[in-house]
Amino acid sequence: MAEWFQDNGLLLGLALLDGLSSAGLIFLVAVGLNLVFGVLRIINVAHGSLYAIGAYSAASIGIFLSGLGLPDWAAVPTLILSAALVGAILGPLIERFLLRRIYAQEEVVQLLVTFALFMILEDVQKLIWGVQPIHHDTAMRALGTIDVPFGADFIPFTNYQLFVLPGIAIVTLVGLALFLRRTLTGRVIVAVTTDREAASAMGIDAAKIFLLTFTFGAMLAALGGALSSPTAALVPGIGAQTIVLSFAVVATAGLGQIEGAALTSLMMGLGRSIAVYFEPELEVVVPYIIMVLVLLVRPQGLFGVIETRRV
């Protein structure tokens, strides 16, 4: 074992760095999904579409503003603003006109409404942005790279990948935690997450909280997409690929638990990057293995609260 570390310790260090940035992106997408699920109890399959639309919009807005002479340093703030814009427009639209009509229905019906929405938006994206890969990487390029020493060698990492992605993920995590614990609205959201019936019995305006939470979740999905857009070429189908991993994060984390989502994302991000170094064929299944193992030990998810059984 010690010998293995001697040989591979440096690689493990690299895997940690990669895992962190990968975890950051996983977290940003999954935490919105988890928040929405915690409050609305809807598994929003269209979260993947919001991710994709967030990515496409950020790229389009970025390309447009660059054409107008936007300085490079503004690229990252532009990403964040365009994500907020997408969420603020699409979130209320979807909640008001679609989800609100089906809150009374069965869970499976709610899930399917978002699945239908996902299918529709998949084609809408194609109609708007076409099928050729779109990429706009100013944010990644402008920030440059940093050389990380690796034995006698060195490995260049992009600052965007090494600092911006995990940084924004951490800021989001801390900000969310403070918001949920310190503000009244935040506490109401937590109350609805933990015990919906009791919360509404106490006269909480569920309609407002649902609208707010969903919009917020949509913004987070769009933010995940927007932040991935500088490093990834956008093509049809990216939403479907992304959302399925977020499902696993939500179930592993525990319902509505943002710290759970953070820890799960970290485990999955690290697990995947370690797999790439030592057993690449396992990379795809690592998240699911983690999920199964966690649920074997903690059936309610990492940070999940055991719900009182109704009689």
Binding site: V113, I120, E122, K126
Partner: peptide, 20 residues
């Protein structure tokens, strides 16, 4: 041919919303 998902999704939405 290039918007079948849109149609399929819309049919499902309509059924759920108007034909429970």
């Amino acid at each position: 041919a290039d918007a079948w998902q849109l149609i399929l999704g819309s049919v499902l939405l309509l059924v759920i919303l108007f034909a429970p």
